[in-house]
């Protein structure tokens, strides 16, 4: 697996992680090496094998439709980097 810097740029954009121009090639090589290594999985015949998406046999548990949470905006906002009244605040988003 060889990754190029364009692909790394696309992935970094999806992950919202800034990548410096000068590190793109090195990162591409590094990630490419890891991906090349995990591709050893292609040696395994997995025809007719269902993907294992969860561990354990029990079924999805559910909660009753009861209001037993919320009502504490102070706790919700206690770590906010920026707030305006009871709102979280971020730089203006333009749609």
């Amino acid at each position: 697996m060889v990754l190029n810097r364009v692909t790394v740029g696309r992935i970094a954009a999806l992950a919202r992680i800034d990548i410096a121009e000068e590190e793109a090639d090195a990162l591409a090589a590094e990630l490419g090496a890891i991906l090349g290594w995990v591709e050893t999985l292609n040696e395994v015949d997995t025809d007719d094998i269902a993907p294992m998406t969860s561990v354990g046999g029990h079924s999805l548990p559910w909660r009753a439709d009861e209001v037993d949470d919320g009502g504490y905006p102070d706790r919700i906002l206690s770590n906010a980097p920026d707030a305006a009244g009871a709102f979280f605040a971020v730089p203006k988003v333009v749609e």
């Binding site: 305006a84 009871a86 979280f88 605040a89 971020v90 730089p91």
Partner: peptide
């Protein structure tokens, strides 16, 4: 978007 001139406010 329209309550603060520079910021977008978030209500969850």
């Amino acid at each position: 978007h329209d309550r603060d001139p520079d910021r977008t406010l978030i209500d969850l």
